[in-house]
Design a binder for these strands. Structure first.
Lengths: 141, 141
DNA sequence: GAAAAAGGAACTGGATTAGTTACTTTATTG
DNA sequence: CAATAAAGTAACTAATCCAGTTCCTTTTTC
């Protein structure tokens, strides 16, 4: 996995906090600590997945395409992940029946373990993330 | 994650099937489809973790250091993973209180999701893996 | 002493990644 | 209409990582 999921959650979190007013890739890049181009690459994937909408030109930027309470973090993951497999699978070059049976067993286990991870991401919505941030910001320790 | 976990499970699976007689890195490399040096790199980590024991010289090779029923696949993961974090964390360069609170929230969620994945690996022992392979080999479809 | 095995250092090539530059396109505003 | 502010995107770079290979040393057994 690359860092695109983390960037995507930054984008979604900020967009949610804006409640409709667009946020520019420049602002997102500054708050994340990288360049606007990197941000726009992730924004492009979130657009394709229908999670954000973007307007060009002066006054443009990105807003959430759907209500924050309907977007789970798993959707963000699936939007940016080129390959949904986190654990690299057994290669095809195994020799011998025992090795092949073992490879299948391990690959199935990997799939199951990844599902467990994704279920945790699915259990959290952008709205919940936003509520958490708001609660921490309103009353700083 | 690199492919070392997959190689480690190949090693543990084969060692278990040998029931005490050592397996060489050459044989492991042939059945996995790579070179002995790559195998020995993983073997070194499994040794350090106390999962296998290796003898040099003629007739040498590796055997399980403990009973297969006491070794979970999570131990194999922890033996080979340099970094237990699967999902790359938020960088430290975030600017602004909202970004920092968001980063903490996301990092904690990542930790939780990874724990869910590791629990799946912990639920399977090398002995169970071995039993599965044996059952499939004895009666080929 | 020969053979068989592990240990491991050092290098290579390929892939991936984040970052940067530079240019084009789109929209707004004065 | 011109200036400005924004996204879109291609192309390049530098760094990193990783698997694979070569080569040599050490250990053990026969």
């Amino acid at each position: 996995m690359n860092s695109q999921l983390t960037i995507a959650l930054h984008i979604l979190g900020f967009s949610a906090s804006r409640a409709g007013t667009p946020v520019t890739s420049d602002e997102l890049a500054r708050t994340y600590g990288t360049s606007p181009v990197v941000l726009r690459r992730v924004l492009a994937k979130l657009q394709r997945a229908g999670l954000v909408e973007t307007q060009r030109g002066r006054g443009g930027g990105s807003v959430l395409a759907r209500d924050a309470s309907t977007i789970t973090l798993r959707e963000a993951y699936e939007a940016v992940a080129d390959d949904l497999q986190i654990l690299p699978r057994h290669p095809s070059g195994c020799a011998g029946r025992a090795a092949l049976v073992l490879a299948d067993f391990v690959n199935d286990l990997y799939t199951d373990a990844e599902r467990a991870l994704l279920e945790r991401l699915e259990a959290v919505t952008v709205a919940e993330m936003d509520r958490h941030v708001r609660s921490q910001i309103r009353m700083p320790a």
